[in-house]
Amino acid sequence: MKVLRALVRRPAVALSLLYIVIVVLLALFAPWMSPYDPSEQFVEGLSLEGAPLPPDTPYLLGTDLLGRDLLSRLIYGARTSLFIGLLANGLAVLIGTLVGLSAGFLRGWVGSTLMRFTDLMMAFPALLLAIALSAIFQPSVWIVALVIAMVNWVQIARVIYSETIALSARDFVAVERTLGASSLRILFSHLLPHLLPTILVWATLGISTTVLLEATLSYLGVGVQPPTPSWGNIIFESQTYFTSAPWLVFFPGIAIVLLSLAFNLVGDALRDELDPTLQGRS
């Protein structure tokens, strides 16, 4: 509670939190919030020449190439994008942290094996892996999230690995050993709190890359299947019409940028608040 109050005291962070809350609420209550059905193609949603309509009433953010309401699609798209962003990214951070932490702490052959496997995954083209995985499994939102997690954990594991090694060499870890602390205790009670800033930064940065990777996969036909909207596939569906119908790229683009910015700002602030050595500063 104290942390939350401290966060709200910073205007930029308060705005970010507000934006995240709005997006989450929209996603949760999409059927009641959206003005139209996201996949209904309106005849009057296209001009006489068959071009999409620019933002105006009754379609507040305009319509897309098939005459569907963009606002409704964005609201429903928030569901997919948030779900994938949070689940895929959360999984990636979890796997990456566990692998990096144990490899960095245990070293020896366990550490080497884990890191060589990580290197292997890193060397493998991420997109190819994603395509292969989604081709094997039936594409669904869950599979897309899993696939993205499988691809994204690698960098996190690398970073956590090197930080763990640096941390393990610090005196206080040696002191813990002389006090008789077990490895698990050192890992989770002493090392993990120090890695929290890194994990938070990756977790928040990752959300934007995840949303974009989902968009790429959708574009290649192995991601979220149409007509289910996601912020990513809205952009990719309409990117060739960018000059004639810029709103189709602009609004979902802004939504993604604001979401990742909001998560970043909140993550940064959270990191500072959770560090006792920074208390009362800045």
């Binding site: 005196d171 206080f172 002191v175 002389t178 006792p276």
Partner: peptide, 15 residues
């Protein structure tokens, strides 16, 4: 038991 040289490094700053 052991007491180390650098009292800045020997205490976990987050506890």
């Amino acid at each position: 038991q052991m007491v180390f040289q650098d009292p800045y490094a020997a205490l976990n700053p987050r506890k």
